[in-house]
Amino acid sequence: MKLLVCISQTPDTTAKISFNADGTEFNPAGVQFIMNPYDEWYALVRACELREALGGTVVALNVGPAANETTIRKALAIGADEAVRINADPQGAAFVAKQIAEYARGEQFDIIFFGKETIDYNGSEVGAMVAEYLDLPFVSYASKLDLNGNTATLERDIEGGVEVLEVDIPFVVSAAKGMAEQRIPNMRGIMTARTKPLKEVQPVAFEDQAKAVQFTLPPAKAGVKLVEPDNMTELVRLLHEEAKVI
């Protein structure tokens, strides 16, 4: 098995989000960065489990600057065998997808994993783009993935239910809750991660055709209006007359 796990680096879930003075760029000052949770908890762990059961190699891939290597080393500590960093600022989803596709094209991976979305841009775009570039099937929001020979059986979350499907390798998948359980890297993993190969690859030229040009913070909530617990008629009145949602 040759498995690729694409990992993104995102601000921590609890990070306070701010932008520069004219709102054109994210302000990273004081922000803790993490591996995108869905990439880490579900995609990477499931790839490692498959490798443990079937043999092979798990490659962790990140498109990002050298500063991302802490995050990449964490993927190696969790269980990836080797890592690749495409040395570029991950400007937008289409740029990142192009870089991943160009790298993966020559490598013949059996499965290419993504998390279901990143917690910064929440776009869920890159997996489908990579699948299209490589002319591969794509299964999004998969909550289960089992392999039997060359055929995978997957469950994917759909509105109000689950779809069960089969597809032969190679394919692209995005992972959701249920596919695996989060793993905390142990000391041995952290030690061996230091010596595992981390290759740097140069990006190909690509211009994003959709760019984030202006960031704003949502208007602050007016503040909670408290209603006495014995006066639910008043709450219903407010929801009807003031909020107009019933």
Binding site: I17, F19, Y121, A210, A212, V213, F215, T216, L217
Partner: peptide, 10 residues
């Protein structure tokens, strides 16, 4: 964007 913590214009 940012799980509801900001709005981006593209």
């Amino acid at each position: 964007v940012f799980s509801g913590k900001a709005i981006a214009e593209f």
